[in-house]
Computed example of a mutant assay.
Amino acid sequence: MINQTILINIFTIYIRISSALNTNEDSKLNFTGLGFKYGHNVEEHNVITEDGYILKLYHIPGNDRRPVLLVHGIIDSSDTFIIRGNGSLAITLVNRGYDIWAINTRGNRCSKLHEYLNPNDGNFWNFSFHEMGYYDLPATIDYILERTNQKQLTAIGHSQGNTLFYVLGSTRPEYNEKIKVMIALAPICFLHNVKPPVSTLLELLPTVGNLLQTFGMEEVFSDEAVYSGVIKSLCNQKEVGYEVCARGVFFAIGGSDSSEFEPEFLPVVVSRYPTSTSRKNGVHVAQVALRRSFSQYDYGPMRNIAVYNTIVPPLYDLGKVKMRVVLFVGRNDGMSSIRDTELLRDRLPNVEYRLLEHKKLNHLDHVWGRNMDQYLFPHILSVLKKYN
């Protein structure tokens, strides 16, 4: 039988050949390289959280009186805001004078360092979106405000990236005063009304999570994992990649919009997406959906008593999220449904709700769509102008 090492070597060679055949330059550039290519110097900063995680924070300097923090979604990174080059949100905003800061939350490929834990240690991955909101955001916000000498900043979150602010505002309410406005692109909070295949995936996640835990696999979508390389190689195949990966996965989950996600763009995306997160993070998202409750992580009754002093995990009190939140909702979003975003709207005390007109606007278009300068960015710029 061919042993595992030989298989890994075969896949590694295959992946490298596939990458070499990919001629799209942007797929080979990181955030810093893309910033330079499109006319801007990028600074790299390290932010250390209260619990010891070391986060990579990218900064594209602009007017430091107008800092904007960009927060990516699940299994994503800061690259999501710049991979469209001159058509990306990061470049669009810095070209208009905003001071851009792009976080990488704990565990993704840019933020896999800790003061004393090693990513090979399962304890490193003992986090979900709760810790990202409770630790990563405060450390990053304070770091930016200290360096810009400002008392407030503006934030833009995509998908789970805005979920973190609901965690922050409800568990550390003093940070509400540090946010001028939080623009929530494709808002994720409640998941009561998702449909297949998303609902099916969420139903399976706890079982998959338990299986992974049995095998000691606390990190998922690692760049070093054989299956991640195979996925990237498959998606880069010209004949089948777009049908399988774009239409079969991205469109099926996030909503279909082929005019905004062309075949030539797919290699740029799959060169950095998905990236790593914790098994626990995926399970926590599933719990929110299956329990129909936006609450903290459910460890089970006995451990919940030890952790929370209650059998069930506490709810996040959205009434404490006093920061101004502007919800940007797409009509074709397979993950962030209109009904779920209306539930969120009705529970936030300081909110604006914008159901955008473009009928095909889906979950991924907010960051990857090639014509967002027409359909989305004017709305973002109007909010920024209003509150800055």
Score class of each variant (00 low, 15 high):
N3C: 08
I6T: 13
I6S: 05
I8W: 09
I10W: 04
L21K: 14
L21M: 10
N24K: 14
N24R: 14
V47P: 07
D51H: 10
K56A: 14
D64R: 13
V68G: 05
L69P: 04
V71Q: 10
F81H: 01
G87L: 00
A90C: 05
I103P: 10
R109V: 15
C110I: 06
S111W: 04
K112Q: 15
N118V: 09
G122M: 01
N126Y: 06
H130C: 02
M132C: 09
M132D: 08
M132I: 11
D136Q: 06
P138C: 00
I144F: 02
T148H: 00
N149Y: 03
K151Y: 04
Q152I: 03
Q152L: 00
L153S: 02
I156Y: 04
G161W: 02
T163S: 13
L164E: 14
F165T: 12
L168F: 07
L168I: 07
S170T: 12
Y175W: 06
I179P: 07
M182W: 12
I183G: 07
F190Y: 15
V194G: 04
P196M: 00
P197S: 03
L201E: 11
L204M: 15
L205Y: 14
P206F: 01
P206S: 05
T207N: 13
Q213I: 14
E218T: 14
F221E: 11
D223N: 15
S228W: 11
I231M: 13
K232R: 15
G248D: 05
F250L: 14
F251W: 06
G254Y: 01
S256G: 02
E264R: 09
F265P: 01
L266V: 04
V269A: 00
G282K: 11
R292F: 01
R292Q: 15
Q296F: 08
Q296A: 11
T310K: 15
T310S: 15
T310P: 12
V312A: 14
P313I: 11
P313F: 06
L318E: 06
K320M: 08
V321E: 02
R345S: 02
N350A: 01
E352D: 13
L356N: 05
K360D: 10
N362H: 01
N362L: 00
L364E: 03
L364S: 09
L364P: 05
W368H: 09
M372E: 10
D373T: 13
Q374T: 14
Y375M: 02
H379D: 14
V383L: 09
N388K: 10
